[in-house]
Design a protein around this nucleic acid. Structure first.
Length: 480
RNA sequence: GGUCUCUUCGUCUAGUCUGGUCAGGACGUCAGGUUUUCAUCCUGGUAACUCGGGUUCAAAUCCCGGAGAGACUACCA
């Protein structure tokens, strides 16, 4: 039997990271079993239709390196793959259920939302309408929905590959709507029909569907269809300011794939990180490429408990991927985020990129890290005082003067010359390199920590600006 | 409220099925080393089995009960 999994998103205009992880696992499972991965668009909610939303889905999957074997855009033998184009199919199958006595017409008005003593659908009298009454209502053109006729007695049991066996009393299940009054199926119905017709063998989705799954099982049983294997996934939560957790949403930070990419996370790093939220490999490895994930993925590594999305660890994972990138690729990708285009730094981008690659967790950190190259912000004079480098305000003035003298004598403004020149200054004056470079770095940056050392900064800002900043630094100390 | 599910360091997790390594790794954090600073890199520290019973020579692991948390409870998906 060929394994077939599917990803069935709703076109909402963006890809939530939790949905993407579901797609990822469905894809990884299919690939690890040499099966097929199907994309199906669930656009049965007319009110939530969003322009271009399906395009977002295609693009996201493309960028995320998750490729479907069948789908609306690539075709396949089980189409159409868009639910709104399958309306006739659902109607046909809903009718079959009515014929089998597993569903019924309901002519009740739409239930008002906040009904305190919620008269559950189970009590809807339409369930017991005679064939005669139903025909009469239909002839009158009354609006109707089709509801599932859930048995009032007995229990329903199913097995989940992650959560194990789950049993519920049928009386706790309500007669959910299968076909809406506009003729569209509900998710609950379309999902079951499509998964069956598309030959899906393993249903992979979030655990929020765990509690409604018995109703789907009842549907399969009513149709007489073989029950597929279920793999429910633990949810992804976000941490709230008060310490509690809840379903990951905007208030926790960026939650859509696009937003994370815009913030400067590499698609491969995002995939790597979310793969580890709810699943773990047999060894202690943490950095994976998509190909490697396909190789090692196994249902046995799936967890039951929800995971909290940790942006700090995502930064680390992203940093690992960034550092592993070939320099040219990094340079090219990081450039648009840097903001140096059109500035005096543009021609020295190569050097900046070299300094940035080992230092950032995401591309969007770059502008802040190189801000001081444009202008030195006001800073505390105490930065000149550093015990380890034996630097004091007095010694700083002295050393800055030596630095200025040295800079004045340098004609060829390249990194090598600069390093050699200062190595010589250090030797000639019998001081160590560290103490020599400390004051100038502070004067040129106004920062305790800078990407790159003093000579790197000199090289980047140029001779003229270097001298200007060194003098300003000296004046600043003297003014104290 | 009802139903279902979950519970190991702050976070992601290994270990649970097949009781018996000071409960292991990673992120974070702290300290030290390397580095002209920072980062990288290296060393070390920090910190957890939800609680209560039971079974057992021995329980994170098996059993029972409690507590807490989450999901679902739409003509949304």
């Amino acid at each position: 039997m060929t394994v077939r999994t599917r990803f069935a998103p709703s076109p909402t205009g963006y890809m939530h990271i939790g949905n993407l992880r579901t797609a990822l696992y469905a894809y990884l499972f299919a690939k690890s079993q040499h099966g097929k991965f199907v994309l199906r668009i669930e656009d049965t909610d007319q009110k939530r239709y969003v322009e271009d939303a399906t395009r977002v889905i295609y693009e996201t999957l493309q960028v995320a390196n998750i490729h479907h074997d069948e789908g609306p855009d690539v075709g396949g033998d089980y189409g159409p793959y868009v639910q709104s184009e399958r309306k006739a199919i659902y109607k046909e199958y809903a009718q079959k259920l009515i014929d089998k006595g597993a569903a019924y017409y309901c002519f009740c008005a739409k239930t008002e939302e906040e009904d305190e003593e919620n008269p559950t659908a189970n009590e809807c009298h339409c369930r017991d309408l005679s064939a005669e009454e139903v025909r009469k209502n239909l002839e009158e053109g009354k609006s109707y929905v089709i509801r599932q006729k859930v048995p009032h007695e007995g229990t329903t049991t199913f097995n989940d590959l992650v959560y194990g066996e789950i049993t519920v009393e049928n009386e706790t299940l309500d007669d959910q709507i299968l076909l809406k009054s506009d003729g569209m199926p509900t998710y609950n119905f379309a999902n079951v029909v499509d998964d069956y017709l598309m030959g899906i063998t393993h249903i992979i989705r979030g655990s929020e569907y765990l509690s409604s799954n018995p109703k789907y099982i009842l549907l399969y049983q009513a149709f007489g269809w073989e029950i597929p294997a279920y793999i429910h996934l633990p949810l992804i939560n976000g941490k709230n300011p008060d310490g509690t957790v809840s379903k990951l949403s905007k208030r926790h930070g960026a939650v859509s794939f696009q937003a994370l990419v815009e913030e400067g996370y590499l698609p491969e790093a995002i995939i790597n990180y979310i793969a580890l939220l709810g699943w773990s490999p047999k060894n202690e490895r943490e950095i994976f490429s998509m190909d490697e994930l396909c190789e090692v993925f196994s249902v046995a590594g799936l967890h039951k408990s929800p995971a909290v999305f940790d942006y700090q660890k995502l930064d680390w994972v992203n940093g690992q991927h960034i550092q592993a990138m070939p320099f040219d690729e990094f340079s090219k990708m990081a450039f648009p985020y840097s903001g140096v285009k059109g500035t005096f730094l543009e021609e020295k981008w190569n050097k900046i990129a070299t300094l940035m690659q080992p230092r950032i967790g995401k591309f969007s950190e770059i502008p802040e890290k190189i801000k001081f190259l444009y202008e030195v912000a006001p800073y505390d004079v105490e930065l000149y005082v550093n015990k380890k480098n034996k630097s004091t305000l007095e010694s700083s003035v002295e050393i800055l003067q030596k630095t200025i003298d040295a800079v004045n004598q340098i004609d060829s403004w390249d990194e090598e010359t600069l390093s050699e020149a200062f190595a010589k200054v250090a030797a000639d004056n019998n001081i160590k390199y560290g103490p020599l470079m400390w004051p100038s770095r502070i004067a040129m940056s106004g920062l305790l920590a800078t990407p790159g050392g003093s000579t790197d900064i000199m090289y980047l800002i140029g001779k003229e600006e270097t001298l200007k900043r060194l003098k300003a630094g000296m004046d600043f100390i003297k003014a104290q």
